[in-house]
């Protein structure tokens, strides 16, 4: 099972500069856990207390997972996951 995960600039320090990495799993949470095994530290930047961080946006096949199932959003082989930090401020 392979899912393509697009990594934003700010998190590429965890992926040796790679813009895209592969992950496996049947839910977004599993994919993130799988990424963590090869890119230690990345999970902490995406997830807080089991939920997606407020200012991290994740899309599965162009849908914001907040409107799907959050970290429990199902993924399957060939899906594309895009991670984008919010552009926000005060």
């Amino acid at each position: 099972m392979a899912v393509e995960v697009r990594i934003p600039t700010i998190l590429r320090s965890y992926t040796d500069g790679a813009k895209t990495v592969e992950g496996g799993g049947t839910t977004l949470a599993e994919v993130i856990d799988d990424l963590e095994t090869r890119h230690a530290g990345i999970k902490e930047r995406l997830v807080e207390s089991g939920d997606l961080r407020r200012f991290i946006n994740v899309y599965v096949n162009d849908e914001d997972v907040r409107f799907l199932g959050g970290v429990e959003t199902p993924v399957k082989d060939g899906d594309t996951v895009v991670v984008l930090p919010a552009v926000a401020g005060g």
């Binding site: 946006n57 899309y59 914001d64 984008l84 919010a86 552009v87």
Partner: peptide, 30 residues
């Protein structure tokens, strides 16, 4: 008046378009 945030779908569209055009956000303003 005290906070801004790009809409999440606008954000995805923006970054996809930048990628397709070989561009980056050189300036982010608010």
């Amino acid at each position: 008046p005290t906070f801004f945030e790009f809409d999440s779908h606008d954000l995805l569209r923006l970054y996809r378009e930048l990628d397709d055009r070989g561009e980056v956000p050189v300036v982010i303003y608010h």
